[in-house]
Simulated assay, not measured.
Amino acid sequence: MLEEHQTPEEILGESGLLKQLTKRLIERALAGELSHHLKQEVEEEKGNSRNGYSKKTVQSNHGEMELSIPRDRQGNFEPVLVPKHERRIAGLDEKILALYARGMSTRDISAQLEELYGAKVSASLISEVTDAVMEEVKAWQARPLEEIYPIVYLDALYVNIKVSGRISKRAVYLALGVDREGDKQLLGLWIGEAEAEGAKFWLRVLTELKNRGLKDILIACCDGLTGFPEAIGAVYPQTQVQLCIVHLMRNCLNYVPWKDKKAVAADLKPIYQATTIEEAETALDACSQKWDGLYPAISQIWLRHWEHIMPIFDYPMEIRRVIYTTNAIESLNRSLRKVIKTKAVFTDEDSVFKLIYLAMRNITRKWQRPIRDWRAAASHFTILFPDRFSL
């Protein structure tokens, strides 16, 4: 049969072979469903029988498709493959969600589906499909967590949301955990009430994590936000707070013009890559002597945050690499920004949750499991935290 349909258009087109085969397969499956239904009716002595067909047009991956739906005389047959009042074949919703997860608008998705499959799907129907995800998002956001995550990265990114008729820039708070097996998990996401990231809101986030079952965090990696370490300590007093080196470097280089960025970055590297804290202090002194005349803010940033930079020097390189070399939260944020940048303004908070949640489903498929160097780091955790962590 395929020999009679040589061109892609003849096979995949609006009236192509693949669409015809799909239509026949669906109609056979529906006939099988009715046969099974009638067999049960006979066993229950209800005396039901076939009663012809009705026509129904549905949207599918291959465009609009007119199906012959078998009927029973008593009218109590409920097809599973093409339910009553349903106008879409299973599989189309997944394609809609996949396109939405890549940041496409509802109108763009509608145009894309029509171009690829000949399926004329309205923007309002696409909104209905994506809105249905919110129940899944709510369940995910409230799911129970494991009792311990050795490492949790805490960070925020920003989106524009329309609030009460005006555009407001809001922080989206992200908590990324690494579990005992070394697998990364996004523990949740929250949208702040103010237009800037705040330690008070982080306190609320951490309290929610604890209420969901997260009893202990060994190391919390965060940025230099004022009051952040205190917020972590209020909920998890045993947790070691480690300032994110990536954030620290970015803050420093914000004070440096382009022509000197590479040289300054090279001179800062020996500080955080030092073997001991004494070596780190020596490297910081050398950097200060060289650059304080031009950029005094750099050394002041390191000195101001030194208390939460020092802990990294207590750990062996295996744990250090896990904490800062993998840059887990930065990698995640970079992937999310590629998606959300397509949305200049979100219509509401739900649209933010939907997009980030669906984008996360794509991002997590590419994650390495376990994360790099985890086995060696976990072995050190068992020695450093014998009462709190075990393999």
Rank of each mutant, 00 (worst) to 15 (best):
L336E: 03
A378K: 01
K169T: 14
G233P: 03
A111N: 11
I217M: 08
V137L: 10
A280Q: 02
Y153F: 14
V152W: 02
I277Q: 14
E4H: 13
E197R: 10
A274M: 04
P237F: 12
A280M: 08
L218M: 11
H305N: 15
A280T: 12
A29F: 13
P83D: 13
W367Y: 14
W367I: 07
L209M: 15
A111F: 05
Q112M: 13
R102A: 06
M1I: 14
K338L: 13
I89M: 15
E115W: 08
A132Y: 07
I219P: 00
D292P: 01
F381D: 01
A29V: 07
L268Y: 09
P8A: 11
R71D: 01
T364P: 00
S127R: 10
G91C: 12
L243R: 07
L189F: 13
G32W: 12
P316L: 00
M360R: 05
P257N: 04
L206Q: 03
V235M: 06
G16D: 07
V129P: 05
A156R: 05
E78C: 09
E193Y: 03
N160V: 00
C222N: 07
F389D: 01
T207N: 12
T7M: 08
I323S: 00
E115T: 13
Q240G: 04
I69K: 01
K138V: 14
W302N: 07
D285P: 02
L145V: 00
G233I: 02
W306Q: 01
L99G: 05
L97M: 15
G192K: 06
A199W: 13
Q141K: 10
G118M: 14
A29W: 11
A31E: 15
G103I: 06
L2N: 15
A196R: 13
G103V: 08
I356R: 06
N160M: 11
D131Q: 15
H380G: 03
H5T: 07
E135W: 06
V241W: 04
E94G: 08
S60F: 09
K95R: 12
F353A: 04
T382L: 03
Q368S: 12
T325H: 11
A378G: 04
W306G: 00
